[in-house]
């Protein structure tokens, strides 16, 4: 069996598990995992396949959450239109910030995205629409397409699973498309990609917009699930968290970021009572992952599997 078939088999198995999961695990926790799994997978598209480390992805996640919460709660949009509005807003934001950020490489790219995200954060803090420190609370879940009642956790779970599957499929298809191959070429050797005639900046921008849009989709969905958009979603700690999830699961692996997201959410859930130690634990996981298993969980397993097959 070759690598790609194995990958598809693993994903199909995981999908079946996800279908059955809400009968075993608390559905809201599962939905939180799915939202963050999508967020991390979207982030991974940039760091894992283009080699660009964004330290500002919270602006897409949080920004979209605010737009969805505002359109649904204040303007009375149905949930599907609210999610669409949030996702589109994230796409526009990603286009505007991407044009600026891709002007610098490497470490500067990380600092530029972090600073741009901090700007969005201050906007969320000061703007009259966002409720300042309180955020937008009590967002109605409503009825999707006018008939699916989302106030039922189990129903909402399957809607979230459908959104996650859609987003994940988009990412999977992107990675395995000719476009994705060009992205990998840019990651491996940018000057060579340029000399082969690829407009590297346009490819980077497209990847940035796609990644930001899907991160926005995750944030919008989260706003409906928790009926809340808050400053936490847009703060730099959130950008750091998604970096951690992706790093732990495996940079540049297909399912790694989702695995990392699930583990970090479980960890937060377990250590909820420990307060500030959550921050310390996350820091320790960061340091250990960088020092001991840089490929991440999925990456190390894949490397192990290749070694065995030889």
């Amino acid at each position: 069996m070759n690598g790609k078939n194995l990958e598809v088999l693993v994903m199909a198995g995981l999908f079946v598990l996800l279908l059955a999961a809400p009968f075993v695990v608390y559905p809201v926790l599962m939905m939180q995992m799915l939202c963050f799994a999508l967020f991390a997978s979207a982030f991974n598209l940039l760091i894992g396949y283009v080699g660009l480390l964004s330290f500002g992805h919270a602006m897409f996640f949080g920004g979209a959450a605010y737009i969805t919460a505002h359109t649904v709660k204040v303007m009375g949009f149905p949930p599907e239109a609210g999610i669409l509005a949030g996702t589109l807003a994230a796409a526009v934001l990603a286009l505007a910030t991407g044009v600026l950020a891709i002007r610098r490489q490497g470490i500067y790219f990380a600092m530029v995205t972090l600073a741009l995200a901090q700007m969005v954060y201050f906007y969320c803090l000061q703007s009259p629409y966002t409720g300042g420190e309180d955020g937008i609370q009590g967002v109605p879940r409503g009825r999707m397409f006018g008939m699916i009642d989302l106030s039922n956790d189990l129903t909402l779970y399957y809607v979230v699973l459908a959104i996650f599957t859609f987003g994940f499929f988009v990412i999977y298809r992107t990675i395995h498309s000719p476009f994705g191959q060009v992205l990998k070429a840019i990651r491996e050797n940018e000057p060579r990609a340029i000399s082969l005639g690829y407009r590297v900046d346009q490819y980077k921008l497209m990847a940035f917009v796609l990644s930001g849009t899907l991160a926005g989709l995750a944030g919008s969905t989260k706003a409906i699930v928790f009926q809340l958009a808050s400053l936490t979603d847009a703060a730099w700690q959130m950008s750091g968290e998604v970096v951690l999830m992706t790093l732990l699961g495996g940079l540049g692996t297909v399912i790694g970021p989702a695995v990392g997201a699930i583990l970090i959410i479980l960890m937060q859930e377990k250590f909820k009572t420990l307060g500030d130690w959550v921050l310390v634990t996350q820091g320790v996981v960061f340091v250990l992952t960088v020092l001991l298993f840089r490929k991440g969980i999925a990456g190390e397993i894949a490397a192990y599997a290749t070694r065995i097959r030889r």
Partner: peptide, 16 residues
Amino acid sequence: LYGLLLTFGLALIIEG
């Protein structure tokens, strides 16, 4: 990037 990630982790530990 790994130096950046490592020192980010350290920052979280110290702050926590």
